[in-house]
């Protein structure tokens, strides 16, 4: 059962990701991106991270996607302003590079999770710690061990805000 659900989410995220990078119209791409994020959120849930799954929906779908849509509407692109794809030979070469990457990165993954290392950890897989992904654990973790990082995030968002507002506004001194 879990495997089937996993496969569904996996296919959903991969297929819509491919759609994002192949379709031409940004609006369509954004919609595909939502589907991809949703698929990944489902995977997060399966990986016993329900809180992160929810945050994924809220932050990505809620914030990032909306930002993209706003900008697309703001720019109101005409067809000739969009820019299409790279020439065919470039795209083929890129596909080739990506395939190599997948192979290179898969070799160690497969090698790792078939040997003794895998057996050692296999016992814990079926039953994850019940507290692993729940909000309380993450909350405690954030406000104890990673309190400084949490503060730093707020500073980072301030910096991003200042930068974004400055860049997007029209008026300039002088």
């Amino acid at each position: 059962m879990t495997d089937t659900i996993f496969m569904v989410f996996a296919v959903m995220s991969i297929a819509s990701a491919i759609a994002v990078v192949t379709w031409r119209n940004p609006v369509h791409c954004v919609l595909a991106l939502i589907a991809s994020f949703a698929g990944v959120a489902g995977l997060f849930y399966l990986l016993s991270a329900p809180f992160i799954a929810v945050m994924q929906i809220i932050i990505y779908a809620g914030a990032i996607i909306v930002l993209f849509l706003f900008v697309i509407m703001l720019l109101n692109l005409k067809k000739n302003e969009m820019g299409g794809d790279a020439p065919v030979q470039d795209r083929l070469f890129t596909v080739f590079l990506c395939v190599i990457t997948v192979i290179i990165l898969s070799i160690p993954v497969v090698a790792t999770f078939t040997g003794t290392f895998y057996d050692q950890y296999k016992k814990t897989f079926p039953k994850p710690d019940a507290n692993l992904g729940i909000t309380e654990t993450i909350g405690q973790e954030i406000f104890s061990a990673h309190a400084l990082a949490f503060e730093l995030i707020s500073i980072l968002i301030i910096a991003a805000l200042i930068g974004a507002i400055y860049l997007a506004k029209k008026r300039q001194r002088g």
């Binding site: 995220s13 991969i14 990701a17 491919i18 994002v20 990078v21 031409r24 940004p26 791409c29 991809s36 990944v40 993209f68 900008v71 697309i72 969009m82 820019g83 299409g84 794809d85 790279a86 470039d90 795209r91 890129t94 596909v95 590079l97 990506c98 395939v99 990457t101 997948v102 990165l105």
Partner: peptide, 17 residues
């Protein structure tokens, strides 16, 4: 997913995408 994303950055000419 990583490879697909990388493909998008390299092969798409639309900065939004």
């Amino acid at each position: 997913l990583f490879a697909i994303g990388a493909y998008g950055v390299i092969a798409k000419r639309n900065i939004l995408i």
